[in-house]
Design a protein around this nucleic acid. Structure first.
Length: 936
DNA sequence: GAGTTTGAAACT
DNA sequence: CAGTTTCAAACTC
C-alpha cells in the first residue's frame, strides 16, 4: 500500500493522470486487446481473459502510473507512441470537449444523443454536441476520437477534432441506435462489438458488428450474469468506440479510409484501448478517490479500485469475476460495480454515456484532474436532477472500467469484497472514510444506475439527495450529487489523501467539506463521547473512526473493538434500530414507470425512519436529518413549518390521504387516527417500523414522492406483503422509510397490523416476514418488496447481497421489481434479470437497506429490500394499493393476517443494523463493522 | 477559525 | 412518556 502510494502519490492527479494517459496510450494495448479478444473468444466470459489482462494491467499499473488504461491501449495494437501522440494531440481537443461536455452536460442525455447524431453531420459542432449528447459519452467519445485522430493521424490534425467530434457524434448515434435496437441487449452487443473491434474486426462493416453484437447480446443476455452486464458496460463503451470508429470510417473516414485504411481499424482498436486506459485511469483516480493527490496509496487504491474493479472485472475479466462476483456482489453496490451491474442492463444507454463520461473524465484526468472533477460534478448534478442518472452512470461506468482495470491490475480483486472494503478502510486509513467514500461513491453510482433504470426506485433521487447521506447529498439532486462528487473529489483530492494518506486527515477533512467525506461518510469530530455514542457518525454508521476523523479520545477503533461492541450492544438494547439506517427507501412505488422515467422514484419514496423534529430550520438545512438525507419529511416527522424541498410532511400526509381514500383505508384504525399519530405511534416504536417516511417526498420532493406512492400503491397489487416487507427492508430502524411508511399506511389502512406491529413487530420482524414471504410469498401480495434502497446500504448491501446470493443485485432489484410487478417474489428477486434490472436501482437501495439494516437473516433471505442509502433515503415506499385496499376494505382481513404473519416472522429477526445510515455513506464499513460484531 | 445555532441523542 | 441536558454537526461571522 504504502509503496504504491509513494510511487503514485507524488503526482496524484495531474501528473498521475498524465503519466497514466501516456502510459495508457503506450502500454494499454495489451490489456485492451486481451480483454476484448477474450470477449470475442467467448462472448460472455470476457472476464477471464480480461482478468488476465487486467492482472497484467495491474502489474503495470502498480509500477508505473496507473496506467491500466495505457496497457490496454497498447494492446489495441497501436503503437504506443502514436497513442501518446494522439493523447497529446487530443488533449487540446479533449479540453475543448470536456468544456463542451461540461457546458452541455446540462443538456439532457436524450438531447445529447440527438445532438450527437446530428453532430455527425456537423463535424465542427460535434465536439460540442458530443459533450452535450451524453456527457460521459461525449467525453468518452471525444477522447477516443481524439486518439483516433491522433492515431490515425489520419491525415489532418485539424480534422482530428472534427473527426473526433464526428466519431463521437457517430458513436453517440450508433450508441443510440444500438440502444434502441438492442435495448437491454445493448450492453452485450456493445461488448461484443468492442471485442470484435479490438480484435481488429472493427474493419468489418458496422452492420456486421451490429448483427454480431446482437447475437452476442443474445448470448450475453442468456448469461444474464452481472458480469455480462459489467462487461457490457465496458464493451458498450468499446462498442461505442467501434461504432464511432466505424462511423468515422464510413462517414468521415470514408474518404479518409484510404489514408487511414488500416489506420481506421487501428484507430478503432486504439480507441477502445485508449478508452479503456482512460477509464481504467479514471477508475484508478476515482478509486484513489480523490486521491488524486495520493494517487496511489496502493492499499486504498486497491481497496477502492478492487471493489470497483471487481465488479467490472467480474464483468470483463472472467478470472476476477469469480471472486469478483462474490466480491462484486458485495462491493458492487458500494462502488461503481453496483452501478455497473445494476445499471448495465437498464442503463445501456446511460452506461454508454457514463462510459463516455468516464472516458472523458479519464482523459480529463489525464489531462486535467480538475476536468474530471468538473465532469463528475456536472455529472452528478445532472444525475441528481433527474437525468442525472445518465451522468452518474457514466461516471459509474467509467469507474467500472477503471476499477476493473485497477482491480485486475491490483490483483487484489480476488480478495473478498468485504476484505477489500475493510482493507480499503484500513488502508485508506480512514477506514470509515474510505468505506464511506466508497459507499458514497457506490451509492452515488448506484443511484445513478438506479435512476437510469428508470429511476426505478427513484433511488437516484434519494441517492442524489443522499449524496452524503442519502446519496446522498445534502440537498436534492444537486445536493446528492454534489456530496458524492464532493466525496469523490474530496476523497481523490483531499479525502482521498486522507483515506490513503492518513498522514493529513485533518487537512483533508477540511478540504473535503466538513465532516463528511466526499463520499458522504462523515468524519466525526467527537470530543466527549469518545465516539461511542450515536452522536458519533462513525459509530452510528457502524464503522470505525479513521484518521480523517478529528475525534478526541476515540474508542471507536479496531483496537477497542470489544468496547465498541459492548457499547453498541447497549445502545441496541435500548433501541434495536439505533444502528439501522436512518433513511429507508420505500419500495419503489412504481418502479417501472419511474424507472423508465428515469429517476427519482427511489429518492422520492425514501424516508427517514424516525423523522425529523425540526422547529427552526424548517427542514431546509442539514440540521434536518430528512433534508440531510435528501429525503422528504413524512408523517413520522414532528417538524414544524416543514418546507423540506424533498417533500413536505404535508404533502406526504396528503398523499397518504389520497391513498387512503383510494384504498378505502379509512376504515382502519389508522383512519380514525391522524396519520401522523398513527405513524408516529406505530412507526416511532422502535420495534415497529420507524416512523413513516412517506414515499412522496422524493428528490422531487415530496409531492412527487407522494404521488409516486399513490401511484405505486395503486399499481401495487398487494400492498400488504409489500408493506410489511418494505418495512422490513427499510429496516427496523426507520419507520420513516417509505417502506415503513407504506407499511404503516397499509397497516393503518388495514387497521391492522399496526397494532400487531406495535405489539412487538419490528423492522427486523418485517424483514423476517419478508423472508417468510419469500419462502411463502403471498400470491396476492406482492410480497413485499420492499423496495427500499439506500445508497449506503449499497456497500453493505453489496456485501450482504453477495452473501445472500450471488444475484445480490438482482435480488435487490428483484425485490423492488417484485414489488411492483409481483410482490410475491420478494425472496426470489434475484431470479429475474428483468426484475433485477428494473429494480437494480431500487434494488440497490433495498439491498442497501436490507444489507445494512437487515440482519444476516434478511440477507440470507435474499430480501429484495434495499436499504436506502443514508444519503438518499428516498427509498420508495411500497404502497400496496391492494394491500391497502384489502386492508382497508377488508381491513382486518388478509392484510392483517399478512401482517400478523409478518409479526411472527419479525421476532425471529435479529435487530437489523442496516447499512443505510442516514449519511448513507459508510454502509460498507458498517456492514463490515456489523458483520464483525455479529461474528463476535 | 471561533462562536452560534440546531436538533438528535442521551439522560432524568 | 415527557422534559431536560448533552453532544456534535451545521451554520454563521
Amino acid at each position: 500500500m504504502d509503496s504504491p502510494k509513494l510511487s503514485k502519490s507524488p503526482i496524484p492527479s495531474a501528473s498521475a493522470f498524465a503519466s497514466a494517459s501516456a502510459s495508457i496510450s503506450s502500454s494499454s494495448s495489451p490489456v485492451q486487446e486481451s480483454p476484448f479478444s477474450n470477449y470475442i473468444s467467448s462472448l460472455s466470459p470476457i472476464k477471464h481473459d480480461k482478468a488476465a489482462h487486467v492482472a497484467q494491467g495491474f502489474v503495470g499499473l502498480s509500477s508505473p502510473p496507473l496506467v491500466f488504461t495505457s496497457p490496454r491501449i497498447n494492446t489495441l495494437g497501436r503503437p504506443q507512441s502514436s497513442s501518446v501522440e494522439i493523447s497529446q494531440k487530443c488533449e487540446g481537443d479533449k479540453k475543448i470537449i470536456n468544456e463542451s461536455c461540461i457546458l452541455e452536460r446540462s443538456v439532457t442525455e436524450s438531447q445529447g444523443l440527438v445532438t450527437d447524431i446530428k453532430n455527425e453531420d456537423n463535424k465542427d459542432d460535434v465536439a460540442v454536441q458530443l459533450g452535450s449528447s451524453s456527457e460521459c459519452v461525449d467525453e468518452y467519445l471525444a477522447d477516443p476520437v481524439e486518439t483516433d485522430c491522433a492515431k490515425s493521424a489520419c491525415s489532418v490534425k485539424l480534422n482530428l477534432k472534427q473527426s473526433n467530434n464526428v466519431l463521437q457524434s457517430s458513436v453517440d448515434g450508433l450508441l443510440d441506435l444500438k440502444n434502441i435496437k438492442f435495448g437491454s441487449k445493448n450492453n452485450v452487443g456493445r461488448e461484443v462489438d468492442a471485442a470484435q473491434f479490438l480484435s481488429g474486426q472493427s474493419e468489418e462493416s458496422i452492420e456486421r458488428k451490429l448483427t454480431s453484437d446482437e447475437k452476442l447480446l443474445k448470448i450475453e443476455n442468456e448469461q444474464g450474469s452481472a458480469q455480462g452486464i459489467s462487461d457490457g458496460f465496458q464493451k458498450f463503451e468499446s462498442d461505442r468506440f467501434d461504432l464511432s470508429s466505424k462511423e468515422k470510417e464510413c462517414k468521415n473516414f470514408g474518404p479518409q479510409k484510404d489514408g487511414r485504411g488500416d489506420g481506421c481499424s487501428n484507430f478503432l482498436q486504439q480507441l477502445p484501448g485508449s478508452l479503456l486506459g482512460v477509464q481504467s485511469y479514471e477508475g484508478f483516480a476515482k478509486n484513489i478517490g480523490g486521491d488524486a493527490d495520493v494517487p496511489v496509496h496502493s492499499m486504498t487504491h486497491e481497496a477502492s479500485e478492487l471493489q470497483r474493479s471487481m465488479s467490472r472485472r467480474c464483468l470483463q475479466f472472467g478470472e476476477a469475476q469469480p471472486e469478483a462476483t462474490a466480491t462484486c456482489s458485495i462491493s458492487k453496490n458500494r462502488a461503481n460495480n453496483i452501478i455497473s451491474s445494476t445499471s448495465l442492463a437498464k442503463n445501456s444507454e446511460t452506461e454508454s454515456l457514463s462510459s463516455s463520461h468516464l472516458d472523458l473524465s479519464a482523459k480529463s484526468r489525464t489531462r486535467q484532474l480538475v476536468n474530471l472533477s468538473q465532469l463528475a460534478m456536472n455529472m452528478i448534478p445532472q444525475c441528481y436532477g433527474n437525468s442525472s442518472l445518465t451522468v452518474l452512470k457514466p461516471s459509474g461506468i467509467g469507474l467500472h472500467l477503471n476499477s476493473i482495470v485497477n482491480a485486475t491490475s491490483m490483483g487484489q480483486g480476488g480478495t473478498a469484497s468485504m476484505k477489500l472494503a475493510q482493507a480499503i478502510k484500513s488502508t485508506s486509513t480512514t477506514s470509515c472514510q474510505t468505506t464511506e467514500n466508497i459507499d458514497n461513491c457506490s451509492d452515488a453510482f448506484e443511484k445513478v444506475s438506479t435512476p437510469q433504470e428508470g429511476a426505478l426506485e427513484q433511488k437516484v433521487c434519494t441517492i442524489a439527495g443522499s449524496a452524503s447521506e442519502s446519496l446522498f447529498a445534502e440537498e436534492s439532486v444537486g445536493f446528492h450529487m454534489t456530496p458524492n462528487t464532493k466525496r469523490k473529489f474530496s476523497s481523490e483530492d483531499g479525502d482521498g489523501n486522507d483515506m490513503f494518506d492518513q498522514q493529513s486527515p485533518i487537512k483533508k477533512r477540511k478540504k473535503l467539506s466538513n465532516s463528511t467525506d466526499g463520499d458522504g461518510c462523515k468524519r466525526c469530530n467527537c470530543k466527549k463521547t469518545k465516539c461511542l455514542k450515536l452522536y458519533c457518525d462513525c459509530f452510528a454508521a457502524g464503522i470505525y473512526c479513521a484518521e480523517p476523523c478529528s475525534c478526541q479520545g476515540c474508542f471507536n477503533r479496531p483496537e477497542y473493538e470489544e468496547t465498541v461492541l459492548e457499547t453498541r450492544k447497549q445502545i441496541e438494547s435500548r433501541n434495536p434500530l439505533a444502528f439501522s439506517p436512518k433513511i429507508v427507501q420505500p419500495v419503489t412505488e412504481f418502479p417501472l414507470s419511474n424507472r423508465e422515467d428515469g429517476n427519482r422514484k427511489t429518492p422520492s419514496s425514501a424516508r427517514h425512519k424516525r423523522g425529523c423534529n425540526c422547529k427552526r430550520s424548517m427542514c431546509l438545512k442539514k440540521y434536518c436529518e430528512c433534508y440531510q438525507a435528501n429525503v422528504g419529511c413524512s408523517i413520522g416527522c414532528r417538524c414544524e413549518g416543514c418546507k423540506n424541498v424533498y417533500g413536505k410532511k404535508k404533502d406526504y400526509c396528503v398523499t397518504e390521504e389520497m391513498v387512503n381514500r383510494s384504498g378505502e383505508i379509512s376504515e382502519s384504525r389508522v383512519a380514525a387516527k391522524p396519520k401522523k399519530e398513527i405513524f408516529h405511534s406505530e412507526l416511532c416504536d422502535p420495534y415497529h417500523l420507524t416512523p413513516l417516511t412517506p414515499s412522496v417526498q422524493c428528490s422531487d420532493h415530496g409531492k412527487n414522492a407522494s404521488i409516486s406512492r399513490l401511484l405505486s400503491r395503486r399499481c401495487l397489487p398487494s400492498p400488504e406483503s409489500d408493506l410489511t416487507v418494505l418495512s422490513y427492508a427499510k429496516s427496523p430502524r426507520s419507520p420513516r422509510t417509505s417502506d415503513s411508511n407504506d407499511i404503516l399506511l397499509e397497516t393503518s389502512k388495514g387497521n391492522l397490523d399496526i397494532d400487531s406491529f406495535c405489539e412487538g413487530i419490528s423492522y427486523n420482524n418485517a424483514v423476517t416476514l419478508a423472508d417468510e414471504f419469500h419462502h411463502t410469498p403471498l400470491p396476492n401480495h406482492p410480497s413485499v418488496i420492499i423496495g427500499s434502497s439506500s445508497s449506503k446500504a449499497r456497500e453493505l448491501t453489496s456485501l450482504s447481497r453477495v452473501q445472500l446470493d450471488p444475484r445480490s443485485r438482482s435480488l435487490t432489484s428483484g425485490g423492488s421489481l417484485h414489488w411492483h410487478s409481483s410482490p410475491i417474489m420478494p425472496m426470489s428477486p434475484l431470479n429475474d434479470n428483468k426484475k433485477l434490472q428494473g429494480l437494480d436501482s431500487a434494488d440497490g437501495g433495498l439491498y442497501d437497506i436490507l444489507e445494512d439494516d437487515m440482519p444476516e437473516i434478511l440477507k440470507d433471505t435474499s430480501m429484495p429490500i434495499k436499504p436506502v442509502k443514508a444519503g438518499s433515503p428516498n427509498g420508495k415506499r411500497v404502497s400496496p394499493p391492494h394491500n391497502l385496499h384489502q386492508l382497508g376494505s377488508s381491513s382486518s382481513g388478509p392484510l392483517r393476517s399478512g401482517r400478523k404473519f409478518i409479526l411472527k416472522a419479525v421476532p425471529s429477526f435479529p435487530p437489523l443494523t442496516p447499512c443505510i445510515d442516514a449519511k448513507g455513506s459508510c454502509n460498507q464499513s458498517r456492514n463490515n463493522f456489523q458483520e464483525n460484531r455479529s461474528n463476535d
